[in-house]
Each structure stands twice: as structure tokens, then as C-alpha cells.
Design a protein around this nucleic acid. Structure first.
Lengths: 128, 128
DNA sequence: CCTTGACCTGGAGTGCGCTCCAGCTATTAG
DNA sequence: CTAATAGCTGGAGCGCACTCCAGGTCAAGG
């Protein structure tokens, strides 16, 4: 159970959050709908107010998304987080598995890069 | 103009080509339709027969696709190749631009990896 | 009071890169 | 000859990750 410190936080409006995180407002709402972003606060008006915690978490989400984790996997990971204590081993396992995948992806990219470089060097000489 | 050596080549059927290249038959046809795979030979029956050149080229296509080049960009690159001599500088430029993008992507992945590792190390200690 | 603009919701639409399908032809095994 | 297998075509369909839209609410400025 994460205890939110009641200290004055600077809440961000959707527009500010979007600007700050580089994620569109629509996508933020989409993430929330999919359960990737939980317990987003609301102003009396019903408008969202994002906390600094949310900012950090969206950063993590983007990091995982950018490295190829699917929304579905992310949803699973977040669901574990929501269940709280006891799920840490599984969460850790998921992260480790993802880490391996990213390492492999990087390797593949580097292999591909070699081929591209090779192809480029062909153009250096006259014949294709 | 690429002059095909008339020497006995071992032509591959679509099924063989698919097996060999790891690209599905449907995708091979799709690539051809999109102009990424040109002048594929045909048997008298009308069935495709892929040459060893085709094998090599599909490998290049996959390499570029795997590193994030879009079908659209690939189409452009292939169109240049089809136009023949004179387009080499532009082709080279495209490859170089792509190379830069791949380098940046690798860097981003490595940055992301750091965050993931950091997150993983958190689970090593007890608090999330 | 009226307008403006940011935000709300549920749901429809989009773009990409395939993937599948119907209906047909050709080749091969028995 | 027949049946099974592989391939052909044009076009429809799919999954993912958003992205957009209609129709409505709310708060502030003039």
C-alpha cells in the first residue's frame, strides 16, 4: 500500500501532464482506461489532476513501451502492482524477462547495423 | 541494369523461399505488390520462382524492416534501385540517414535499459 | 448572462503491416 | 481419371496502439 504523502503536491492538469511527459492527452486517458495509470486524482470539477508520482510512473510506462513491451503485458504488470505486497517476485521476473528481450533486441539492431554498414560501403566503391 | 547471369540457378518455390527467408508466403507476395521485390520470375505455370538474388534481397529488406524502416520508405528506396544508375547518391543518403536513426534507436534502448535495471535493483532491496 | 476554452465520456475511426479468404488453375501421386 | 497439394489473384479482415469525434459540463473573463 503506497501511502500518499499529503504534503502540498503540485498537481498537473491534463494539458500540463501531456506537455511534461510527451504523451498526448488522449493517450494518457487511454492508458488510464487500460489500467496502466491508476488512481488518478480528480478536481472537484471532475477534471484529472496528475501527481508527481504519476509523472514518474508515466516515464516508466514510456520506457517499457519504447522498448517493446505491449499494452497487454504492461496491464498485467500494473495489475500486479495494484494487488500490492506479495507480487514483487512476479513483477521482478517480468522485468527481468523484459530486460533480456531488450538486450537481445539491441544485439539484433547491432547485427542489422553491420549489414547496413556493409551495404553502405558498397556504394563507396562504384558497383552496387 | 542488373544482368542476370544465366547460369543454372536454383530457383525456390514460394514455400521454399518462405522457409528459407523466414518471411511468410503472404508477406512475400505483399512485398512484391508494394514494389519491394521486383521482377520475380515465374514458372510456365505462373508460379513464382525466387532466385538466389531474391534471397539476398529479402534478407536486406528484413534487415531494414527490423530496424524500423517503413514499407513506404522501403518502397522509395526500391523505386530508386529500379530507376538504375544515377540514383546511387540518393540511395546512399537514405541508407546513411537510416543508419543514423538506428544508432539513435540503439542509444535510446540502452538508456531505457538503464532505467529498467534501476527499477530491477529496487526489487533487490525490499521497498518498491 | 454569454462566450470561450479546457476537460469530460463512450465509442468510432485510423494507419500500419501484415494475414486470411474465396474461387480458380496447375502439377503430381496413385 | 481422380484426388490431393501447391500456387494464383483481388480484395477483405485483423490486431495493435493510439487518435479523433460528438455531445455535454464547468469555471473564468468581459
Amino acid at each position: 500500500m503506497t501511502i500518499k504523502t499529503k504534503a502540498k503536491e503540485t498537481w498537473l492538469t491534463p494539458a500540463q501532464m501531456s506537455e511534461r511527459s510527451g504523451v498526448s492527452i488522449d493517450t494518457l486517458r487511454y492508458y488510464e482506461k487500460e489500467g496502466l495509470l491508476q488512481n488518478v486524482s480528480r478536481a472537484a470539477s471532475g477534471h484529472r489532476r496528475y501527481s508527481s508520482e504519476d509523472i514518474l510512473w508515466v516515464e516508466v510506462l514510456r520506457c517499457l513501451r519504447n522498448t517493446g513491451m505491449s499494452i497487454d503485458q504492461l496491464r498485467h504488470y500494473c495489475a500486479l502492482g495494484a494487488q500490492g505486497t506479495g507480487t514483487e517476485p512476479e513483477r521482478l521476473a517480468l522485468l527481468n524477462a523484459h530486460r533480456q528481450k531488450v538486450l537481445q533486441d539491441i544485439e539484433k539492431m547491432q547485427k542489422a547495423l553491420e549489414l547496413i554498414d556493409h551495404k553502405i560501403s558498397f556504394y563507396g566503391s562504384k558497383t552496387e
